[in-house]
Design a protein around this nucleic acid. Structure first.
Lengths: 217, 217
DNA sequence: ATTATACACGAACATTTGTTCTGTGTCAAA
DNA sequence: TTTGACACAGAACAAATGTTCGTGTATAAT
């Protein structure tokens, strides 16, 4: 891509603007977003983007900018765009550790995926989905068939909802993680009617952080 | 669809225009296409289309018209996973009936929406979202803050997960609906550890069918 | 008969909008 | 040192743009 940083930021702004608003921005809206004080400079850059095949402009027409397929194609490839293809890597059951993806994994190797928007998946990084099998996650208010959206990480912060493998019990659990001391971790169920459990950190293996749960009916 | 012929032609023109041009038409372009000589009449009809939930208008903005139904913008994406903007119409709490949108619902309530893919929302028809307030829906495995995706319908089929208003109890509940006889409906909690409740059909008002639940963490 | 509502219309207006003009600055090549 | 390309900038301008106002007609409800 032989675009200047400013041209890239203009193109990105146009994409997001169309997605959010349903219509393209004006010359002045682009200028404000890209910190360009002159409509002439915006005009100049838009003409370059058109010459290079990223947009099409209609002359003397308000908001007369159309993203061309070249832009849209990049949009579907770029991970920071509207739709995220989240690979479904398998099942989460209580009696097994969570399937942890190799890092980094290629989405092209995955047989099944679910498309989500950035409204749902805002976090960056390795994101994957697991389908819940059985009703053992009910204390996390997660039910058989639900899809759990995970971020691959082995460390948890207080308050994170994590998939944790309890070695002694040989059990995966979904609970909020709170490190209370160097010898004690509290795992708090999402259901406030249930009591937490306390484990020694050595008994615990963080397998990923839950960032969303999706239930289709 | 209770639109006048002129309103239907305006809507169709907007759809085609967006598809062909990548941006919506102006008030005057709509007028020319629909043989309306006055911008005031176009403005009047667009306000009706907005009130009936077909478009969303941004005030005092050129081309500030956005299609709310499945838009032509979705169709330009070469993908079978279009994006659905699902309006968030308010809260669902146990002590009140669900806010039921007018059909088609009014955009005056649509300050907020959530973008979902067709992987999540496969059903057609009037789809909206409600945010759960409080933990009274826990027996449906739905928790405070979750987003419930609803389809507006007043009749339920056996097995549907519905939002039902219980008139005598003055309570909204989310449960699976089973009509056992003309005098008895079973409402089955999602949590299999809980018992169903039985109500007389006259005590029950189906307010919508749940098609998905989304929990972000 | 009166009132309310829906639909329609032309005109006026303030603001928005894109283009063009003229000028400046930076940098690399000749 | 000069030249040309590229990028930037402010200002001016004509045309576009959406909203509002006042008015009219037809139909339904009171």
């Amino acid at each position: 891509m032989d675009l200047s940083p400013r041209q890239k930021s203009i193109l990105e702004f146009i994409r997001k603007f169309v997605q959010e608003n349903g219509y393209p921005p004006t010359i002045r809206e682009i200028g404000r977003a890209a910190n360009i004080s002159s409509t002439s400079v915006v005009n100049y850059n838009l003409n370059i983007l058109q010459a290079k095949g990223y947009i099409q402009r209609d002359r003397e027409v308000s908001r007369g900018v159309k993203l061309l397929e070249k832009s849209l194609l990049e949009q579907t490839l770029a991970s920071d765009q509207g739709i995220v293809q989240v690979p479904v890597l398998g099942r989460i059951v209580a009696s097994e550790p969570v399937p942890i993806p190799d890092e980094p994994f290629s989405p092209l190797d995955v047989d099944e995926s679910i498309a989500l928007t950035r409204d749902i998946v805002q976090e960056q990084g390795p994101i994957y989905a697991l389908q819940v099998k059985g009703d053992s996650m009910i204390d996390a208010l997660v039910y058989d068939g639900d899809i759990v959206i995970m971020k691959a990480q082995k460390e948890a912060k207080n308050g994170d909802l994590v998939a944790a493998w309890l070695k002694a019990e040989k059990e995966t659990t979904l609970k909020r993680f709170y490190r209370e001391s160097t010898t004690r971790v509290r795992l708090q169920p999402a259901n406030p009617n249930l009591k937490p459990i306390y484990v020694h950190p050595s008994n615990l293996e963080i397998q990923g952080k839950v960032i969303a749960v999706i239930r289709q009916l």
